Amino acid sequence: MKKISKSASSQILIIGYGNTLRGDDGVGYKIAEIIDQWNLNNITSLAVHQLTPDLAEKISQVDTVIFIDAIYVTDMNRAKIEIKTISINRKINNLGHHNNPEQLLSLTQAIYQKIPLAYWILVPAVNFNFSESFSSTTQKYARVTLEKIKIFLSDQSLK
Rank of each mutant, 00 (worst) to 15 (best):
G18T: 04
N19L: 13
G28I: 11
D24Q: 01
A32S: 14
Y17L: 03
N41Y: 11
L46M: 06
Y29C: 14
N19A: 02
T44C: 10
N41Q: 11
K30H: 15
W38Q: 04
W38N: 06
D36M: 02
E33G: 08
D24V: 04
S45I: 06
L40C: 02
A32W: 14
I35R: 02
N19K: 08
Y29T: 08
G23L: 03
N39E: 12
Y29S: 11
G28W: 05
K30R: 15
L21P: 11
L21W: 10
T20I: 15
W38H: 02
H49Q: 09
D24Y: 03
N41T: 02
H49E: 09
I43H: 05
K30W: 15
I35L: 06
S45M: 02
H49T: 03
D25Q: 09
D25G: 12
I34V: 14
V48N: 07
L21N: 12
T44W: 14
N39D: 04
N41I: 10
N19H: 14
I43M: 06
A47R: 01
I35E: 08
T44V: 12
T20S: 12
A47V: 08
N41A: 02
D24C: 00
I35C: 00
I35D: 05
T20Q: 14
K30P: 13
V48F: 06
A47C: 02
D24M: 06
K30M: 14
I35K: 09
A32Q: 10
L40M: 08
N39G: 06
I34C: 09
D25W: 07
L46G: 01
H49I: 04
N19E: 04
T44I: 14
Y17W: 10
N39H: 13
S45E: 00
R22L: 08
G23N: 06
L40D: 01
H49S: 01
V48W: 00
I34W: 09
G23V: 01
G18C: 09
K30T: 15
L46R: 07
G28M: 11
D24N: 03
A32M: 08
R22V: 02
N39I: 10
Q37K: 11
Y17V: 03
G18Y: 02
I31P: 15
A47W: 00
I43A: 01
V48I: 03
N19W: 12
H49L: 00
K30L: 15
A32Y: 12
G23T: 01
G23K: 01
V27W: 02
A32C: 11
R22Q: 14
T44N: 12
W38D: 01
Y17Q: 00
G26L: 03
L40E: 08
G26N: 13
I35G: 07
N42I: 05
